[in-house]
Write a protein that binds this DNA or RNA. Structure first.
Lengths: 226, 226
DNA sequence: GCGACTTTGTTCCTGCGTTCACAAGCGGTT
DNA sequence: AACCGCTTGTGAACGCAGGAACAAAGTCGC
């Protein structure tokens, strides 16, 4: 049995496909019917050749000499990414960040719907955020089972993140997005993806500092007084 | 003039150094005086060999047969990352996400201090969040100049992000962390780093879907009925 | 004091991602 | 109908990150 096309799309490509999808939506709203790889690449902030290679994973979907049909390409990327059907998500840890995510309009428009918000603090239970009511952690397994939620988001403090991860996995969640600054271990069959905001800031700060240091050294090499 | 050690540390290594720094702090609080690369790697969720290679960029800092001295290594990483001195940051766009970041304790403990919160909506101006008062955008240049803020964080809607980026760069900010879902173009000498929360979720969803598809194909290949 | 064990630091290698460059193909024009 | 310009899709080369294996070095026990 020959696979006509390898189903394994590189993760970096998947991430960019999501960006292309958003750019294509903007083009469609602007009334454009076709775009070239150059235009789309500029809108997405990537290299045109790389964009074409990314799209090649979906099979031929452009017309040579013309470009890509906006609507067709948009639909195809959406189907590959699975945006066509809505995905139920649960969110654990309703602090500042959790509240912001629960209320973030950008998720709903991309097919992600929060069907359950959970927190351990009794003070938070009952609060209404983004159309949902915060529930106690005890109800997590029930909600995941009844809603068939496949994605869990962890915005708890670091010390309870692993325990929450275990409970999510046990309840049947298949994918976890972790904002807590600890590496999580999950059973096989459960994907974990980490977003670490402090690390992003520290990398940024380091790059800025490094640039200053380099400039200082270059200046010294050019004969500046010590 | 020979550089005893190349000053260019890979960006991926820098990101992991920040993780090691956090793990080392945890070890220090636990009273540990030394750790091996294996222990630290497990706490950071990486491969021990890779960890040693990362640390090799800082020069020899361990003792063979023993491991790494927690306090010494922590100080060295902190110095390389520039955590020792506090960095002034400004934040533009005080929506849900912006408020959460302004109030996020994880930044302050890592040497990042928000010295200005800005928003265009008059309704938000004057609000107090995390010890700061939200100000109008007009005051951005003044605040950046007086506080010598070097880092700007953008949590505005996409359509105004580029304009905010321009104003930040003009005001003298050197590094920008962008949460808006658009690629920003900044003048030379200004670093931009992007965090796209919807993309993270979409990648996660795709991986989960792909896993299901693969399982279905595997099952069929094993002789399941069609 | 010496040997064995432990752990670091480095080197090699494999695989992946990115970029450049070119051939193939389609539409418009004469 | 044939030519020309434009754009896609792909093949090759380059650079980089990650992982495994090995040599160097220091400590602990005898």
């Amino acid at each position: 049995m020959i696979q006509p096309r390898p189903r394994t799309i590189p993760e970096a490509t998947v991430a960019r496909l999501a960006v292309y999808l958003r750019a294509l939506t903007t083009f469609a709203e602007g009334g454009r019917s076709t775009v070239s790889s150059g235009e789309l690449a500029e809108a997405a902030g990537v290299n045109p050749a790389g964009l074409r290679k990314d799209l090649s994973h979906l099979g031929p979907c452009g017309v040579r000499g013309v470009g890509y049909e906006v609507q067709t390409l948009r639909d195809r990327i959406a189907r590959v990414l699975g945006v066509e059907r809505s995905r139920a998500c649960v969110l654990v840890g309703i602090g500042n960040l959790g509240s912001a995510l629960a209320d973030y309009a950008g998720f709903g428009s991309r097919g992600f719907e929060f069907v359950g918000l959970f927190d351990a603090a009794t003070a938070r239970i009952g609060q209404r955020i983004g159309g949902q009511t915060v529930r106690p952690l005890d109800e997590l397994a029930d909600v995941v089972a009844t809603t068939q939620a496949s994605i869990g988001v962890i915005t708890t403090p670091a010390d309870v993140a692993q325990s929450v991860c275990d409970r999510l996995a046990a309840a049947g969640v298949r994918s976890i997005l972790n904002f807590a600054p600890v590496p999580l271990v999950a059973p096989a069959g459960v994907d974990v993806r980490k977003v670490d905001l402090s690390v992003e800031l520290q990398v940024l700060a380091f790059l800025g500092q490094q640039r200053l240091d380099d400039a200082a050294v270059d200046g010294a090499a050019l004969g500046e007084p010590a």
